[in-house]
Nucleic acid binder design. Structure first.
Lengths: 174, 174
DNA sequence: ACCTGAACACCGTTCAAGT
DNA sequence: ACCTGAACACCGTTCAAGT
């Protein structure tokens, strides 16, 4: 609060006239971030639409420091965020996701992106000498299990493909 | 730190003789929690083994308050946690997961469980009157998109099934 | 309507000093 | 070897008082 206030050339106490508290401010920041992120154009294939959406979501998250905790700790019932939730939900239903599992699946996908970006940022913010130190510590066998992704874009898309392949497989199973 | 010290009838400053800092303490707690969680017995079917593992993981997480942030913010290079990572990784390889995507997939699954339990705890800790207030605020259409899971166990398993169906589908695709 | 200074109750952490 | 008191530099938040 003090840091944000400083940036605005006011005092932290003044922020409490505009926002009820830190989480309320988070909510406003999250809404702003979501208003800047471009939804892809409607597509006949809901899967293509969703994959494009989640790619844009990740790009938005990567564009702003600490966006993940802000999104994670804010309440999503703001206009722009609800718009996104509706668009995603409709596409999921169109893909064959059942109503009873809609929230679970939407949360799963949302959490995938947030967790992926959180891990990505954590890695990118780890100093190289620290990484080297860890590398020295691990035995050869374990290095395979804890290797660092070389291409985050590629790995992100691969994870998405796994998730959508799962949704399609369960749809066809009945 | 002060709260933990109080529980031990010492002062917070004393903890710094035993641990280098808060995250170091988190690491020790995480290792302890993981040592209490029983790995399922080896199975011929790696998928059964993995599903049993992640169910036990969730049970462990639910058994202790704030376990999710402790696991999320600690470094996993401790003996018991490495044991678990090795067992999970081996089962994933046996399932047909490729070496290049192993870390991505293992992280995806780990993040799924952590995020699911985090959401579950958030909901369970939301007072009923607050939930009712939100319910009143939403329009009927949106309620479908933001419904609360009635059975967390069932939804957790469903999410796992989606993930494993995706892994199997991508394996068969080549 | 909007901002401030001063305070409150909290953090994690350090360190000289104790035993 | 293990613990402590006192301090440091931080938090988010409140509120009477200013303009």
């Amino acid at each position: 609060m003090r840091a944000i206030a400083k940036e605005l050339n006011i005092k932290a106490a003044s922020l409490y006239w505009h926002f009820s508290g830190k989480l309320d401010l988070y909510g406003a920041i999250a809404e702003y971030l979501c208003s800047r992120y471009e939804m892809p154009e409607e597509s006949d294939d809901p899967k293509d639409y969703l994959i494009a959406s989640y790619r844009a979501y990740r790009t938005m998250l990567l564009s702003t420091r600490d966006s993940v905790p802000v999104l994670e700790n804010s309440i999503p019932y703001t206009p722009r965020r609800m718009e996104i939730i509706r668009a995603i939900s409709k596409a999921l239903l169109k893909m064959g996701v059942k109503e009873q599992t809609l929230t679970t699946i939407a949360n799963l996908l949302n959490n995938y992106v947030l967790s992926f970006v959180a891990d990505e940022c954590r890695f990118k913010n780890t100093p190289p000498d620290k990484l080297h130190e860890i590398d020295k510590m691990l035995c050869p066998q374990d290095k395979l299990f804890l290797s660092i992704p070389s291409d985050f874009d590629e790995q992100f898309i691969y994870g998405l493909q796994v998730l959508f392949a799962g949704l399609e497989a369960l749809k066809n199973r009945e």
